[in-house]
């Protein structure tokens, strides 16, 4: 069974935000919900790097652990998904998430943020694959169609990789060996408790 992961090669990311709008396009994500975003470190100085970040679908996911209603589940592909029917919008997953992935429709009076929304690795939710109900709540289910997340598929420089962890790690490793530098597999040690040694 594949172990799905994301990897952003910051030495290729140019902050073009294609991943961000591809996500909006594929899932019709409304204004204010940013399932994926690009953060620029050291902006405007030599050494500047941009990193595209979304839910990393962690091993032993912290969001899943802290959820008071246990609305998260991990698929056999190790995609961390959640049920919006169960979610109560408490916001704990945001506090626990190392990557700021969970999003809420409202900032909310008195913490009523609405149902949490986050990257699904383009694989929907608990509803039947490709159903209207699934689309309305979670967006498209590309994985069920044998496709990978659109953000990575549309990445302008092939910086953002999505797919089986071993395969994308091998791609990244080969790249770093070829070009001779790499700023690291961002988020991997935190999300997967492993890094890619080159």
């Amino acid at each position: 069974m594949a172990r799905m992961k994301f990897l952003c090669d910051a030495d290729r990311c140019i902050e073009c935000n294609a991943c961000v709008t591809a996500c909006k396009n594929e899932h019709e994500v409304p204004w204010g919900i940013n399932r994926r975003r690009v953060v620029t470190i050291n902006d405007g100085r030599p050494g500047e790097r941009s990193i595209s970040m979304a839910c990393m679908h962690c091993t032993d996911a912290p969001c899943q652990a802290v959820c008071p209603v246990d609305c998260f589940y991990t698929t056999p592909d190790h995609v961390v998904l959640h049920s919006k029917d169960l979610c109560i919008g408490c916001g704990y997953c945001f506090y626990a998430c190392p990557f700021g992935a969970p999003q809420y429709p409202r900032v909310g009076n008195f913490g009523s943020r609405g149902k949490m929304d986050k990257c699904t690795f383009c694989s929907g939710g608990p509803e039947p694959d490709g159903s209207e109900a699934e689309y309305v709540k979670y967006g498209a289910n590309r994985l069920a169609e044998g496709k990978l997340p659109l953000c990575a598929e549309m990445c302008s420089t092939k910086s953002l990789l999505a797919g089986d962890g071993d395969i994308i790690a091998a791609i990244y490793k080969a790249r770093v060996e070829k070009r001779g530098y790499g700023s690291g597999a961002w988020g991997w040690s935190t999300a997967y408790h492993e890094t890619i040694e080159v």
Binding site: N17, G32, N34, D43, G100
Partner: peptide, 28 residues
């Protein structure tokens, strides 16, 4: 890790906060 973002949600500027781990261990 924090950086610059262009979207309105200022929280998104935090790229990584491993402190979530301590939160989790406190909470759970």
């Amino acid at each position: 890790l924090q950086g610059r973002i262009t979207i309105p949600d200022g929280k998104a500027a935090t790229l990584e906060q491993p402190q979530g781990r301590e939160y989790r261990s406190f909470h759970e």
